[in-house]
Structures are given as C-alpha cells and as structure tokens.
Simulated scan of single mutants.
Amino acid sequence: MSTTESGRTPVRRSRREEYSESTRSALVGSAIELFAEHGYADTSLDAIASAARVTKGALYHHFPGGKKVLFGAAFDQVEQDVHERLIAEVAAVGGTPWDAARAALRAFLDICLEPVYRRVIWQEGPHVMGFGEWWQREERHSLGLIAAMMEKLMDAGQIERLPIDPLARTISGALVAAATAMVVAPDPQRVRSEFERVIARLLQGLRPLPD
C-alpha cells in the first residue's frame, strides 16, 4: 500500500463505510432540495427517503432524531457549500486583501438571492431551530471566515487595527441584516444593491486615515 508524503499510510474505507456515506449524502441532498422547494412543514420523511431512493429505516439509522436533526444536517451542508464557494471566489480574485474582501461581499450578496440558500438558511432556519440555535450555527459557519478576512486586511494595513471579535461580529451582523432583508423584500435585487453600497461604505470607513 502506498504512503502519503507525510509517510503515513492512508486509511482505506470499507465498502460498507463508503455505502453508508453515500446513503447519508443522498439523504441530505434530497432533504435540501425538498426543504427548499416545499419548506420544512410540508416535507415528510417519507418523501425525503423516496427521493434519496433509500428506506425510511435507513433514514432513521443515519438520523435517529428525525426530521429536525436531518434539517440541521441539510442546513450545515448548504452553509458549508457556500463557505467553499466564497473561499474559491476570494482565491480566484487575487490582488490585495481589499480586492478579495470586496469580491467576497459581492459573492455573498449574490448567493443570498439564490432560492435554496434563501429558503433553507434564512426563511426556514430560524423557525425550525429557534433563534438561539440558528444564530449559533450561523456564527459557527461565518465568523471564522469573516475574522480571517479582517485579519488579512489589518495585517496589510488596509484597515485600522481593531479588536477582531467585535469587528467580525459587526460585519457579520451587517451581512445577516442584508440576507434577512432580501428574504422579505418585494424587490430583492434592489435591496441587494443597496446593501452592497452601504456595507462597502462601512468597510471604507475602517481604512486608516492619511497622515
């Protein structure tokens, strides 16, 4: 068996483990689609199992807590996918940390217009989980990325050095406000453009004053 560059032998998963992982992935993927299309209340576990082409027993094997636990897994998967897309967007831009931050802002606001992200994360999430759990999950997925971006801006001297936790939470709050406003807006595209202008101006205000 070949070894990795670190000298460690890679761990091979059994066929059973691979099948279990593919079953779980199919269930989560089907749940995302159905929750986004019909909402949490109008999506049954039978429908999710049928869409994933597995038995209801298999569903309960992976998610013994039932529909709410499955929703949590769907929520986390949607957020993880968005997280990876934002990282890829920043990497593709190149340029300065300021260029990357502006690109990430535009990309996030564009993603907020997408039906799956809007429905699962911003419409259904707070109602299904309750505000406390929803907020904790949202911060777990977003705060680290925002804090890392702010750190790079400060290290490059492109914004004033400030306490990172309150700074990241302030930017996160502005992004949450934008996302939730777009959910209920009759014209979400207009709201998206307005929030981009406002948040970009807030970021501009963090830039060091000239000597």
Rank of each mutant, 00 (worst) to 15 (best):
S2N: 15
S2M: 14
T3P: 04
T4W: 15
G7R: 08
G7N: 08
R8M: 14
P10I: 11
V11K: 11
R12L: 14
R13T: 13
R15P: 07
R16E: 12
S20I: 11
E21Y: 15
S22T: 15
S25Y: 15
L27V: 14
V28A: 04
V28N: 01
E33R: 15
E33A: 14
F35N: 00
F35Q: 01
A36N: 03
G39V: 08
A41S: 11
D42N: 12
L45F: 11
D46L: 12
I48A: 01
I48K: 00
A49W: 02
S50Y: 11
S50A: 15
A51E: 04
A51F: 05
A52N: 02
V54L: 02
K56I: 09
K56G: 07
G57F: 10
Y60S: 01
G65T: 09
G65L: 03
G65P: 00
G66T: 05
K67F: 02
K68P: 01
F71D: 00
G72R: 04
A74C: 01
A74I: 02
F75D: 00
Q80H: 11
Q80F: 11
D81Y: 06
D81G: 10
E84H: 08
E84N: 12
R85A: 12
I87A: 09
V90P: 00
V90Q: 02
A92R: 09
V93G: 05
G94F: 11
G95R: 06
T96E: 08
T96A: 10
W98I: 10
A100S: 11
R102P: 00
A103D: 04
A104R: 04
R106P: 02
F108S: 05
I111Q: 04
I111M: 06
L113A: 02
L113P: 00
Y117I: 07
Y117H: 10
Q123M: 12
P126H: 05
V128P: 00
V128D: 00
M129V: 13
M129A: 09
M129E: 12
G130T: 06
F131V: 14
G132L: 09
W134P: 01
W135T: 13
H141W: 09
S142H: 12
L143V: 13
I146S: 01
A148W: 05
E151M: 13
K152N: 14
L153M: 10
L153C: 08
M154P: 02
M154A: 09
A156S: 10
G157R: 05
G157I: 08
G157E: 02
G157V: 07
Q158T: 12
I159M: 06
I159N: 03
E160L: 09
P163G: 08
L167T: 06
L167N: 01
L167E: 01
A168W: 02
T170E: 06
T170Q: 08
T170A: 12
I171P: 00
S172L: 14
S172C: 10
G173K: 07
G173S: 07
G173T: 11
G173W: 06
A174C: 09
A174K: 06
A174T: 13
L175M: 12
V176M: 14
A177T: 15
M182G: 01
M182W: 03
V184P: 05
P186V: 13
P188E: 04
P188K: 06
R190L: 13
E194S: 13
R197T: 13
L202R: 09
L202S: 11
L203E: 03
L203Q: 04
R207T: 13
R207C: 05
P208Y: 07
P208F: 05
P208R: 04
L209T: 15
